[in-house]
């Protein structure tokens, strides 16, 4: 059972949290304009990475806020937690993302 550092509440045991799947998958702005294939890509396809993985969590039995976590899926090491809409912290061995103009709307997928 992990000890999860909620960005709002601090470290709390995993039983207080719920998992929300892969992060940074933005709901398309205009679903009607997408082909079936494009919609299926958004709806069903997920990375399922081995190693560093960005995922969503909610502190269900705490502040009830969603946030993102960068976690190693093999060692379960938590590299970083960050608020929704915040820039992605780099994974170990990854170059920090170049500073970009902040998105006008903070969404699940500020960028993919």
């Amino acid at each position: 059972m992990l000890l999860i550092p909620c960005p709002y509440c601090g470290e709390r045991p995993e039983i207080e949290f719920s998992y929300g799947g892969e992060a940074h998958i933005a709901r398309p702005q205009n679903p009607a304009s997408l082909s079936d294939t494009q919609w299926a890509e958004f709806l069903f396809m997920r990375g399922n990475q081995k190693g560093a993985f960005r995922e969503r969590w909610i502190h269900t039995h705490g502040c009830r806020r969603w946030f993102n976590m960068l976690r190693d899926t093999t060692s379960h090491e938590i590299y970083a937690v960050y608020k929704i809409g915040a820039p992605k912290p780099p994974a170990p061995g990854e170059k920090p993302a170049a500073a970009k103009k902040p998105a006008t709307r903070a969404r699940k997928g500020a960028s993919k």
Binding site: A26, R27, R56, I58, W66, I84, G85, R105, R107, K108
Partner: peptide, 10 residues
């Protein structure tokens, strides 16, 4: 809450 916080915080 999910949609409010992550998709439509506006």
């Amino acid at each position: 809450e999910d949609y409010l916080q992550t998709e439509w915080p506006d």
